[in-house]
Design a protein around this nucleic acid. Structure first.
Length: 228
DNA sequence: GCGACAG
DNA sequence: ATCTTGTCGC
């Protein structure tokens, strides 16, 4: 399908690909009634942007799948997808190959449409895998919060960029900074906010993202321990 | 032109 | 992204 987009040689090329992704995002709901939700995140060594990246796809109700690869790029703001999506796709394939059921909805640690070219890592992964995704980021890459987010869990305010609402600033927990929830692929903004809130568990980050974060970290520590 | 900049 | 210890509050 569209996994050719996983590897590009230059940032100029990547920019072209991102414009294609941005135009291909589906912003309406297209997912099963009771989706199996999983989180997606990566882990890497501190300040080692050329070292290996460890990725995890972590279902809420089952074992996580992980994969490791060396990304072709250092970290460049706006091009995160080209570092993370290839190795996340490897973890996804490993999960599919393990025989069990595959997730119907991924909550990705990073932005979706809230991106200069509407192609954040969540959208990138969703289009590449052809699966519904939600972006859930801890800080903004672009755009501004319109108004203010209320103090209580569930309170929200739109994030506007280029004249359109690209995400929702969402208070998950009192006295904790909001998270930025956005459309990745095949999920409406309202549905995205609903799922993140429902899986919040009284914490700032939704459960699937925490599980993926932990699984990716565990994979990295394991790899670092048994090498040498 | 200058500054800002997910993970 | 990640490192590290203690400290504060419910």
């Amino acid at each position: 399908m569209s996994r050719d987009w996983l590897s590009v040689a230059t940032l100029k090329e990547a920019t072209i690909v991102q414009r294609m992704i941005g135009e291909r995002i589906e912003t309406a709901d297209r997912l099963p009634p009771a989706p199996r939700v999983a989180g997606a995140d990566v882990s890497m060594k501190w300040r080692d942007s050329m070292g290996p990246v460890h990725a995890a796809i972590a279902p809420v109700d089952g074992p996580a799948a992980t994969a490791t690869a060396i990304p072709p790029f250092p970290y460049v703001p706006g091009y995160l997808g080209f570092r993370e999506v290839p190795v996340l796709a490897m973890a996804w394939d490993r999960m599919a190959a393990s025989g069990g059921p595959v997730p119907d909805l991924l909550i990705v640690d990073g932005h979706g449409r809230a991106h200069p070219r509407r192609a954040g890592v969540a959208s990138h992964l969703g289009v590449a895998l052809d699966v519904p995704t939600i972006g859930c980021a801890k800080t903004l890459l672009c755009g501004m919060v319109e108004g203010e987010v209320g103090p209580d869990p569930g309170d929200r305010a739109p994030v506007v960029h280029g004249g359109e609402v690209v995400a929702m600033a969402l208070r998950m927990r009192a006295r904790a900074a909001p998270v930025y929830v956005g459309i990745g692929h095949r999920v409406s903004l309202e549905t995205a906010v609903d799922w993140v809130l429902r899986l919040g568990g009284g914490r700032r980050l939704p459960l699937p993202v925490r599980l993926a974060h932990d699984a990716a970290n565990a994979a990295r520590r394991l790899a670092e321990a048994e090498r040498s």
